[in-house]
């Protein structure tokens, strides 16, 4: 198969995977990050509503980016969205692990401190 076939969708999907990878290796959180996510959510809602009202839109978009059928486009986007979710989830998990570590350590150190003061 010619690698330049369906070039547009390939580029779009690769960009999606690339962004997910960057998010995966970067620490998340922060107001800017949250704003981007919320803007993405609004966009998602608008697109979904439009597609529900006018289903043939999906096929139209699919043809426009070089994919034969609307269902194929949905599958591709779903796959990228899943990886994206994993990346965000992973970042959140790491942040939470750091918090649990800090909490557990503070608790252990405080208990030791209290015992020392009791025995002193």
């Amino acid at each position: 198969m010619d690698p330049t076939e369906q070039l547009v969708i390939k580029v779009l999907l690769l960009v999606g995977v690339g962004v997910a990878t960057v998010l995966l290796t970067r620490s998340s959180a922060g107001a800017r990050h949250q704003a981007i996510r919320r803007a993405g959510l609004v966009l998602f809602v608008i697109v979904t509503v439009a597609i529900i009202i006018q289903p043939s839109l999906v096929s139209g978009i699919a043809r426009a980016v070089g994919v034969g059928r609307g269902t194929d486009l949905l599958l591709y986007v779903l796959a990228v969205a899943f990886v994206w979710f994993l990346a965000a989830y992973y970042g959140r998990m790491r942040a939470m692990n750091r918090q649990i570590t800090a909490l557990t350590r503070a608790l252990a150190l405080t208990q030791a401190q209290l015992r020392r003061e009791d025995s002193a």
């Binding site: 649990i100 570590t101 557990t104 350590r105 608790l107 252990a108 150190l109 208990q111 401190q113």
Partner: peptide, 23 residues
């Protein structure tokens, strides 16, 4: 004995021990 309320791993235990020793 200092006790971690939940298992964190040896590195975390070592860091807690170091911080305690420095007090």
């Amino acid at each position: 004995v200092l006790r971690h309320a939940t298992n964190l791993g040896q590195g975390a235990a070592l860091q807690t021990a170091i911080e305690h020793a420095l007090t």
